Simulated scan of single mutants.
Amino acid sequence: METKYSKVKQAIKSRIIDGTYTPHQKINSESELMKEFGVSRHTVRLAIGDLVTTGWLYREQGSGTFCADRTEENHNRTISNQKNIAIVTTFISDYIFPSIIRGAESRLSQEGYQVSIFSTNNDPEKEREILEKILSQSFDGVIVEPTKSAFSNPNISYYLNLERLGLPYIMINAYYDELEPISIIVDDEMGGFIQAEHLIQLGHTDIAGCFKTDDAQGTRRMKGFLKAHRKYGIPLNPKNIITYDTENKNTKPLDEIEKIISTKHNTITGIVGYNDELVIEILNLLRAKKITVPGDVSIVGYDDSFLAEVSEVKLTSIIHPKSEMGRAAADTIIELIKIRANKNKVESPYEHSIVYNPKLIVRNSTKGLTPVEITS
């Protein structure tokens, strides 16, 4: 159970971390804190005293207690012998994430960095807790896969505090648009376009698309899917666009696909999936309904994960760079740390974002109907 002293201390610390208290700003008085938390003056003084001792606050006789400027402290930490990197990802142990993490870890370990890995489970509140830890501890740089990147992020103040402290961070797979950070991503709009175009060029004109739209990757893939239909002049049934989010990813897309294939007038011959993980579940559903792939329905995945080749039907899928992305993220954050430590700053290629061009690997989950004539 959290003590009253710890509660007050953590609350003040959180306000420093999220930028509520800025350097040299006077914090609330002892009386105000006593009233806010319903604690004694002794408890408030203990909490403040500890934060003064550890460098989060400082006192000025006769004036009050102020938020310390930790910018110089963080700069000194970077040029010291401590070498620690935080990797924050939405998920750790499944799908393509282990490959990305291994790629980054391998490169960082070569340079003598210790790596701490955190998972948000695509939950903004969990992301906030992790960012507080990172801002409270000794890290030289941060690699982040943003949480629910399609939405305005409630934790922007924490990223701005990273910037204020001069702590380098980059984003992978997606990024928060309002921050315009250095990022390493796949051109997901083009990926979604290629998925749909592949089926269209094989003669499919009634295609369902499943997209996870609380992540920017999904909204961009959907945009590409729509663009492909427009380019080839193929009408798109709005009912064939299936959107879902993290909370209902295990139920909604399959439920919606089942509704479509179970209707009396179902005519879909192609399905585009947000990723291979979903496509495998769709394959299982189609098999249970005695619908063959690619005999009755062609299906295209995304990420070219290990699932693409272990499934009964080998998946046509968009290639994700995975380990290569991890290594590129590591190279970038290492270089940004070096640039920060070098007062004679020079332009570096690592100060720019990387966008991978998507490519399709064709296997046997797709087949042609009547080819569509391609027009430029």
Rank of each mutant, 00 (worst) to 15 (best):
I17D: 02
E60L: 12
G64E: 03
L285P: 05
G192Q: 07
P371K: 10
R327G: 03
G141Q: 04
I291V: 15
I184G: 05
T89D: 02
N342H: 04
G38D: 00
D18H: 05
A150M: 09
L131G: 01
T22N: 11
S317F: 06
P154N: 05
I156T: 13
T251S: 13
V39E: 00
E125Y: 08
G301M: 12
Y21E: 01
T90M: 13
P154E: 02
K4L: 14
T213M: 13
Y274N: 14
K26S: 10
S353K: 12
D50G: 09
T3R: 10
M325R: 03
G112A: 07
I241G: 01
K252Y: 07
E335I: 00
N364I: 02
Y350R: 13
T269R: 09
I194G: 01
A174N: 12
L369H: 06
G141Y: 02
P235A: 10
K359N: 11
G273F: 10
R102T: 09
N344C: 02
I182Q: 06
P253T: 07
V8A: 01
N240K: 14
G191P: 11
K223V: 02
T251G: 01
H42Y: 07
F118K: 11
T89V: 15
L336V: 03
D296H: 07
R230P: 05
Y175Q: 01
I374H: 13
V362H: 03
Q82L: 12
R327A: 11
L286H: 08
K338L: 08
D123V: 05
K223D: 13
S317V: 07
I92T: 15
K367F: 10
D140R: 03
S298V: 07
R340N: 08
I261L: 09
F37Y: 15
Q217A: 11
I17A: 13
I268R: 09
M1N: 01
N161L: 04
A216M: 10
F139D: 00
S29C: 04
E180C: 09
K359M: 12
G368D: 00
G192E: 05
F225M: 10
I339Q: 12
A330E: 00
L360Q: 03
T89F: 11
L283Q: 11
G55C: 05
H42K: 14
R340G: 09
S31A: 12
I134S: 08
N173F: 07
T263C: 09
I170V: 07
I234R: 06
N121V: 01
E277W: 14
S305M: 11
N250T: 12
E247D: 14
T120I: 06
V272F: 12
D304L: 15
R107A: 14
E309G: 08
V310H: 04
V142I: 15
P358H: 04
V39W: 02
S136F: 01
D206N: 13
